[in-house]
Design a protein around this nucleic acid. Sequence first.
DNA 1: CATATCAATCGCAATATTACGATAAACTAA
DNA 2: TTAGTTTATCGTAATATTGCGATTGATATG
Lengths: 109, 109
Amino acid sequence: MGLTKAEIFTDKQNKLAQMMKALAHPARIAIIQHLIKSQACVCGDLVDELGLAQATISQHLKELKTAGLIQGTIEGTSVCYCIDPKVWKQYKAAFEAFFVTFENGSSCC
Amino acid sequence: MGLTKAEIFTDKQNKLAQMMKALAHPARIAIIQHLIKSQACVCGDLVDELGLAQATISQHLKELKTAGLIQGTIEGTSVCYCIDPKVWKQYKAAFEAFFVTFENGSSCC
DNA sequence: CATATCAATCGCAATATTACGATAAACTAA
DNA sequence: TTAGTTTATCGTAATATTGCGATTGATATG
């Protein structure tokens, strides 16, 4: 079916899965890392950095924007992207909260 | 195309994206959480807990097993699943390492 | 042995994702 | 205005994911 049955899961489960999904592609990881590395705002040189077509990059940027992880401000003809620190912290906290639920456990089988 | 161009990204980027993907579905999140909650190993009652068909649960379990996050040992007619603490720690470390790359930053645009 | 139970796998249908060329929209500069 | 630059969007093709019914294989139990 390809259609996730979101209604049978909790809001938290759906949201966490959505967060994971936003980062579940190497291109989006690479975009985030590039935005972080180049301290200042980075515009369209992502196309040169990664080996993907402009349309593809734009699509990934859109997904990251929809996820809230990045912001884009128009600057002349180009657009300036950067991480949204607030959302970043939320992601970080959500991931930490998830991973902390299983600590120092030993496998039982 | 639907085919990720893995060869243009680094190993780390591909691996991290793969990890995210393994958890990028509410059913898999729910499975993990259920395994954690019920301290002891839980076998086939996942089908009763979540509202998904047996075949679907089995498929998600397989993906989690492929990701290394869970182990399954046969116990009579049923199978006993639990988290692999070693891999869990690796995931935790990888996610932390990723999120720590952007700290106390302020949005620049 | 026959039957019941549990989990994995197969096969299929519906939908989602990834990628890209082509085009459009917005702005700059000449 | 015209041409050039940059990014978004559209349309399309290839592939992946999700979900489930049906079947299979393995192991109990009568």
